[in-house]
Write a protein that binds this DNA or RNA. Sequence first.
DNA 1: ACCTCAAACATTTTT
DNA 2: TGTTTGAGGT
Length: 740
Amino acid sequence: MTNYLNELNPNQQQAVEHIDGPLMVVAGAGSGKTRVLTYRIAHLIKNGIDSFNILALTFTNKAANEMKERINLILNNSESHNLWMGTFHSVFAKILRFESQKLNFSNNFTIYDTSDSKNLIKGIIKELNLDKDIYKVNTVFNRISQLKNSLISHENYRNNVELKLYDEQRKLVEMGKIYSLYQKRLISYDSMDFDDLLFNTYKLFNNFPEVLNKYQNKFKYILVDEYQDTNHVQYMIIKRLAAMNENICVVGDDAQSIYSFRGANIQNILNFKNDYPDLKIISLEKNYRSTKNIVEASNSIIKNNINQIKKTIYTENEEGDPIHLQKTTNDNEESFFVAKSIIENQSKHKLNFKKFAVLYRTNAQSRTLEEAFRKNNIPYKIYGGLSFYQRKEVKDLLAYFRLTINLKDNESLRRIINYPSRGIGNTTLQKLTIQANNNELSIFETINKLEIKLNSGTLNKLNNFKTMINSFKSELNINAYDLALRIANLSGILFELKQDKTPEGISRYENIQELLNAIKDFSEKNPEPTLTNFMSDIALITDKDDNNDKENNVSLMTIHAAKGLEFPFVYVVGLEENLFPSQMSMFSREDLEEERRLFYVAITRAMKFLQLSFATSRYRWGQLIDCEPSRFVEEIDKKFLLFKTQPINKLKVNFKKNKKTFSNNSQSFIPKKLTKISKINNSTNNNSLLKSGMEVEHIKFGKGKILSIEGINGNKTATIFFQNIGQKKLLLKFAKLKVI
DNA sequence: ACCTCAAACATTTTT
DNA sequence: TGTTTGAGGT
């Protein structure tokens, strides 16, 4: 073993060697944060601290696993397998499974993901006969989540005049009722949602001092990564756990706090020193990741935020290329330019595609990129959006597993009682639900007893379903793969999917096979390969935890998902007002500053090459709308930028022949002020002049003829037949039409 | 009970 | 644009 301390700079070394007492490491982007955490843990173990006594909370489970590997390499042993390391949710789920009886859950409780929770809420709103346009599922769900993250139980909520008043002003008078019912249902289903994993852990420690004591004794050393993104309940749990030994080390960067919508509180890091008077603070300001241009440009952005810990990030890396700024006329063209640039850079530097990432503000933006990449044969992988375990077909099979393990899981039952279709429809399900609610039983228990009047046909179908699930239940002790395969076959899911020969159908079938393979793999590697164990934290797996780094793919993801990652070549797209910054965050300085931090996170992912782009128009909700460049672009010091526009006709050129033009031929100048595109339509301001039958020209669609005009004043739409692309419906206030 | 199609609706960001 | 909902037919 080499002396690992030599591999660190003085500040990093200090952070690693400060073993006892509270420590906060304020780690700028690219300053070796992960390195410090990894070496610190190794150092703790090296200095005689038992690896069983270390808790490390990280942002992804994948990051945790990589760090464990690294620690083992440093120490040349396998001690790291003993420490508890993972995300807040997965670590707390593990604790809760040990201690579940204390909170009246079984240790096989089900974890509800967001869509399960929303379905449950939807049912409750319906059941209470509330107006679904006022009580929007998303609104209610977010509110409950927010309350839980602030440690406000449904009982507390109902006793709190202020909170109720807030919701009453939003016309959500029955919020308390919904919250209570939602929580009662979850308990009766032996289930917890994501927020309960945190809330209940807090409750456990709060209500059972002896349990708290046990974990305080176990976790003598606590490390928390990405501390700037912890919310109130996470903060409180850590505070409790650390209270006995105060050997707590938090690592974070206030400039990268981007999760306030999830309750993350930047004050947790800004005020950390208030909780621990003898706190040691170490700042890491030297950036090892990016070129000078990138580091300095990022500094020029973040200095616009008022609320922050002052620090100066610097680097000794080379100056590097200027940051490219690409203007395009629409979102398709933008995607095309990104694809083109990736191919150029890839072939010029003979690089693997995995060195490239494209980052965007919203998941919806991945679509046009995907299209451009497919057309240009660029291999890519989209992270986020729908993860594998949330796909319909996968969730369907998982629902069978979930119900088998937990017969009280009503949401799973609803999902599969008639899938594949076995003639048990809505009417029957409704009768069962009423009966179940009256007797405070789950639907499956109700079916097991079956005391309602139903015709013999339905009765028979229900009995078959009951027998099937019960037989699966009796086999829970067998090997997970064997049981999973049995369920997939006997439920009829495999057969059903095999019928469908469309490309989508085939891919669904393959996904099921992939799931079964994953279970097979699990069964072979796990000492206790039961289906119950396989299912225990499947809801917490995200596709960032996948291990297909070896594949040669460009990464496409939201900026949020890119947190903690780095890539040599980074493209940040969609830098337009109302998209980035999002129009939802223009009401307050806090929100806007968070968007700016998000932008800061985006550009600091880049190591060597960074390209920003914006389009002057973009499809949103199927409508072509005009866009202005993002204010963030203007905040970057111009001396770091290379501004590029390119005439649209150059686009069609085959890039194999056109390699040079892109880098040499492009116009390069420093913009005094980026061209503002007026929001107000500058062409046809007298829409009233337009009549059906007129020949018009559209900036994108070309020449066409108006077939009809509908609607009133501001919202007039015209149905127009365009020569090149056929019939289109356009909103006149957006469409730039010229009468010809 | 189930299927089909058109209208309505929806877009931040995630464990 | 892409998905979900509801009406209407079988």
